[in-house]
Computed example of a mutant assay.
Amino acid sequence: MTTRTLYLLCSAAPPVFDIAGVIEDAQRRSWDVCLGLTPTAADWLEDSLPGLEALTGRPVRSGYKRPGQPDAWPPADAVLVAPATMNTLNSWALGITGNWLVGFVAEAIGKGIPLTVMPCVNSAYAQHPQFLPSLETLREAGVRVLFGPGGFEPNAPGEKRPYPWAAALDAVDQHRP
């Protein structure tokens, strides 16, 4: 099996604390993983960043590079945005690119990079009138949205439940030739 490059892009939601194991699982699936984080997720994982960089062999990104700087990552063969918070999803769907992660995935739609997103919102957030239209906007743009049976199903506020990381990795595995 050929190694391909997966951009694993994470928002600040509790499943981000499991990211080292997710990276290892993706690597066992022959993905070369590049980890990107929203600024808040990077803050949450600040103490773990050196270990995550050692695990991936690449810098963890959470901000834009300076103009003219070379990119430290190879081009993506697939992108997984997970966990994706309400803020990340709505910003992406509305084209509000206030951070590097959302800016990258907004542009990736136009570049034709295979994109998969799995939300991480509780059932109260899922009732917000912008949530489902944002998911539909992303679907219409060609993004594979893993929401509902077989993907992420919202939990009650405060309820703890395992995040379906394996389903997300299974979905990006489908981008292999």
Results as ranks from 00 to 15, higher is better:
residue 53 E to S: 13
residue 42 A to K: 13
residue 143 V to T: 13
residue 87 N to Y: 11
residue 3 T to S: 14
residue 10 C to H: 10
residue 34 C to N: 09
residue 31 W to R: 09
residue 71 D to L: 06
residue 119 P to A: 02
residue 89 L to W: 08
residue 146 L to Q: 10
residue 121 V to G: 04
residue 103 G to V: 06
residue 20 A to L: 03
residue 40 T to K: 15
residue 25 D to V: 00
residue 73 W to A: 05
residue 138 L to W: 07
residue 34 C to W: 03
residue 135 L to H: 14
residue 118 M to Q: 13
residue 62 S to P: 13
residue 111 K to Y: 11
residue 116 T to K: 04
residue 171 A to M: 01
residue 108 A to H: 03
residue 31 W to H: 09
residue 84 A to Q: 08
residue 52 L to R: 03
residue 59 P to R: 02
residue 151 G to Y: 05
residue 79 V to P: 12
residue 141 A to M: 09
residue 133 P to A: 03
residue 13 A to W: 01
residue 82 A to Q: 06
residue 134 S to W: 11
residue 61 R to Q: 11
residue 4 R to I: 00
residue 59 P to N: 04
residue 85 T to W: 08
residue 6 L to M: 07
residue 30 S to G: 09
residue 10 C to P: 15
residue 174 Q to A: 11
residue 35 L to N: 12
residue 61 R to C: 01
residue 122 N to I: 00
residue 22 V to G: 15
residue 23 I to L: 09
residue 31 W to S: 08
residue 44 W to S: 04
residue 90 N to Q: 12
residue 82 A to K: 13
residue 47 D to E: 13
residue 5 T to P: 09
residue 76 A to W: 05
residue 37 L to F: 08
residue 164 P to E: 03
residue 101 L to G: 10
residue 147 F to T: 06
residue 126 A to Y: 02
residue 119 P to Y: 03
residue 17 F to N: 14
residue 43 D to T: 11
residue 76 A to G: 12
residue 95 G to N: 11
residue 57 G to N: 04
residue 149 P to K: 12
residue 155 N to S: 15
residue 61 R to T: 00
residue 90 N to I: 06
residue 6 L to T: 04
residue 141 A to V: 01
residue 177 P to W: 06
residue 160 K to A: 11
residue 136 E to I: 00
residue 139 R to G: 07
residue 157 P to T: 03
residue 63 G to D: 14
residue 28 R to A: 10
residue 111 K to C: 14
residue 176 R to M: 01
residue 130 Q to T: 12
residue 97 T to Y: 12
residue 32 D to Q: 07
residue 161 R to K: 15
residue 119 P to G: 05
residue 14 P to M: 03
residue 43 D to C: 04
residue 98 G to F: 09
residue 9 L to I: 05
residue 66 R to N: 11
residue 89 L to A: 15
residue 30 S to R: 14
residue 44 W to T: 08
residue 93 A to R: 07
residue 169 L to T: 04
residue 21 G to W: 03
residue 123 S to Q: 12
residue 119 P to N: 05
residue 158 G to R: 15
residue 160 K to W: 13
residue 92 W to P: 15
residue 82 A to T: 01
residue 110 G to K: 07
residue 170 D to A: 03
residue 125 Y to E: 13
residue 24 E to P: 06
residue 5 T to L: 02
residue 61 R to M: 09
residue 79 V to R: 03
residue 176 R to D: 02
residue 149 P to L: 00
residue 158 G to D: 07
residue 49 L to M: 08
residue 93 A to M: 02
residue 44 W to G: 07
residue 169 L to P: 15
residue 114 P to T: 00
residue 122 N to Y: 11
residue 169 L to W: 05
residue 97 T to W: 07
residue 74 P to T: 02
residue 39 P to M: 08
residue 7 Y to Q: 10
residue 32 D to G: 06
residue 151 G to N: 05
residue 38 T to N: 10
residue 108 A to V: 01
residue 13 A to Y: 02
residue 151 G to E: 01
residue 10 C to G: 12
residue 173 D to N: 11
residue 93 A to H: 07
residue 120 C to F: 02
residue 52 L to D: 08
residue 150 G to H: 08
residue 8 L to H: 09
residue 50 P to R: 01
residue 170 D to L: 00
residue 173 D to I: 00
residue 79 V to S: 04
residue 22 V to F: 10
residue 21 G to E: 03
residue 35 L to C: 08
residue 67 P to R: 13
residue 25 D to G: 06
residue 25 D to I: 00
residue 92 W to K: 14
residue 144 R to G: 06
residue 105 V to C: 11
residue 21 G to L: 01
residue 128 H to L: 07
residue 156 A to G: 09
residue 118 M to I: 00
residue 138 L to H: 13
residue 21 G to Y: 03
